[in-house]
C-alpha cells in the first residue's frame, strides 16, 4: 500500500473536511486515518491516505489540492509518507 500524508493548516472555516474528502473521493483515494486539532493557534488537520489506486499522477493531485487550498485560504499539502518515516524513524 502506498500512503501519503495530507495536511491542512490555517484558519478554521466551514466545509474544509467535506471539500478535501470530496476531492480525494473523486480521485479514488481512501482515507485511512484523520485527526484535527488546534496546534499553535492554527487549525491543523492531518489525514493518512491510501493513494495506491489514485486516478491521477501524484503531481496532478498535489496541484489540485494546492488549488483547493488557495480557494479556502489555507495551506493544503500532500506528501509521500516516506519523508516522515525517514526523518523520524530509524
Amino acid at each position: 500500500m502506498e500512503k501519503a500524508v495530507l495536511t491542512v493548516i490555517g484558519k478554521d472555516t466551514k466545509g474544509i473536511i467535506a471539500r478535501v474528502a470530496m476531492l480525494l473521493y473523486e480521485n479514488n483515494i481512501n482515507i485511512l486515518d484523520i485527526s484535527q486539532t488546534i496546534m499553535q493557534d492554527m487549525f491543523t488537520m492531518i489525514m493518512l491516505c491510501d493513494i495506491t489506486e489514485c486516478r491521477v499522477k501524484f503531481d496532478a493531485l498535489a496541484e489540485n489540492l494546492d488549488d483547493l487550498g488557495e480557494k479556502l485560504g489555507l495551506s493544503v499539502r500532500i506528501q509521500h509518507e516516506d519523508i516522515f518515516n525517514s526523518m523520524h524513524r530509524i
Partner: peptide
C-alpha cells in the same frame, strides 16, 4: 505510525 507532532515538525522545518 508517525504521530501528528512529528508531521507538523517536518512541515514547519520546510515551510518556516
Amino acid at each position: 505510525m508517525i504521530n501528528n507532532h512529528e508531521i507538523i515538525e517536518t512541515i514547519k522545518m520546510i515551510s518556516e
